[in-house]
């Protein structure tokens, strides 16, 4: 069993670069890094502040042999990218890491101050030397965690986590409130949420499955699905575009919501859609390399939802 540094060094023998994390010298928490040689790899870390889904970089590195450190959730994105031919499996070395839920660093900073010392060890979380309830500070996206260990890997670094007990899977923190709303109340809810949107497109930029990049229809005039104004209506439309484009493709990594600077609960939308897709097609994006995206196929005998 190898640590993260040795594993990356090994993988670098076969690849041009490895996507991983290093420690930010100012805050002391993990930040994404690219390692091109053994010397750089010395700086690699993996801990519970490695929240980013590094698969987002893969479609832009098509011409390179790439190594990537992937948690369970990140690996689903890798699988979905391979299914959609955006990434070639042969070009890729996946360094799997087990994950026991991630910390919401921003939440800690808001509470205890920017750059506060965070020590996360075996069920005890010390913030600025003070022992706190860890459960309070885990990432929202980890609430719905499906897989702590990657389903796709070439090598494992560190220890795997094992099966997640199903009773730990919790819905989105706003789920119970949201489902109790009437459609009209939901309209107001979304209008209020999207009135905060500043159209920074962070949700799109961090999404591994949003690989249209420069031609994204959130911003085009041909066609003009959404207007250019920054208001609740147009912001809602661009999210409707995202949700539609992610139908059967969203792996539920939660990065969009984590990246949103104004805290719009985007995963409420995507969780519901993923749930509908699961119900309709018994399909979960990124679950299997053999799967076919459900909206690119049909089944005359099974597609009977009794309408029409």
């Amino acid at each position: 069993m190898n640590g993260i540094v040795d594993t990356i060094k090994n993988v670098l023998k076969e690849t041009d670069l490895v996507l991983g994390w290093t420690t930010d010298p100012v805050t002391g928490v993990a930040t994404p890094a690219r390692f091109h040689d053994e010397k750089e790899a010395e700086q690699a870390v993996f801990d519970s502040t490695c929240a980013h889904n590094l698969a987002v970089h893969l479609p832009r590195l098509k011409d390179s042999r790439v190594g990537i450190v992937a948690k369970g959730c990140d690996a689903r994105s890798v699988i979905e990218l391979i299914i959609e031919h955006e990434v070639q499996r042969e070009q890729l070395a996946v360094i799997g890491v087990g994950c026991g839920s991630l910390l919401d660093v921003k939440k800690i900073w808001r509470r205890y101050g920017y750059g506060v010392a965070i020590k996360d060890r075996d069920d005890s979380l010390l913030i600025g030397g003070e022992q706190v309830n860890r459960d309070e500070f885990i990432q929202r996206k980890c609430h719905g965690c499906l897989e702590a260990d990657p389903d796709i890997y070439d090598v494992i670094a560190g220890e795997v986590t094992g099966e997640i007990p199903t009773d730990t899977v919790r819905p989105h923190p706003l789920h119970d409130m949201f489902v109790s709303l009437t459609p009209a109340e939901r309209r107001s809810f979304w209008r209020e949420q999207f009135s905060r949107c500043i159209r920074c497109y962070a949700c799109r930029e961090v999404c591994p499955m949003c690989f249209c990049r420069d031609v994204c229809i959130m911003q085009t005039q041909i066609p003009r699905w959404a207007g250019g104004a920054v208001d609740a209506k147009q912001s809602e439309m661009i999210q409707l575009i995202r949700v539609n484009h992610l139908a059967g493709r969203c792996t539920g990594c939660g990065e969009c919501e984590r990246a949103c600077p104004v805290g719009i609960p985007l995963m409420l939308l995507l969780d519901e859609q993923n749930h509908a897709i699961e119900e309709m097609f018994a399909y979960g994006a990124g679950a299997s390399l053999k799967a076919r995206p459900p909206l690119l196929v049909f089944d005359v005998n099974k597609d009977i939802w009794g309408k029409g």
Binding site: P183, A184, E185, R186, R187, S188, F189, W190, L240, V243, A247, L268, L269, E272, Q273, A276, I277, E279, M280, F281, P294, L295, F298, V300, D303, W305, K307, G308
Partner: peptide
């Protein structure tokens, strides 16, 4: 057939978007 899948998913998402599901219908 492709439309059926797209439209059925859309109709299931209506309530999530805050639109009464009855407001959207597809038929043959």
């Amino acid at each position: 057939y492709y439309a059926h899948r797209r439209l059925e998913l859309l109709s299931r998402m209506m309530a999530v978007y805050g639109i009464e599901p009855e407001r959207f219908r597809y038929t043959w």
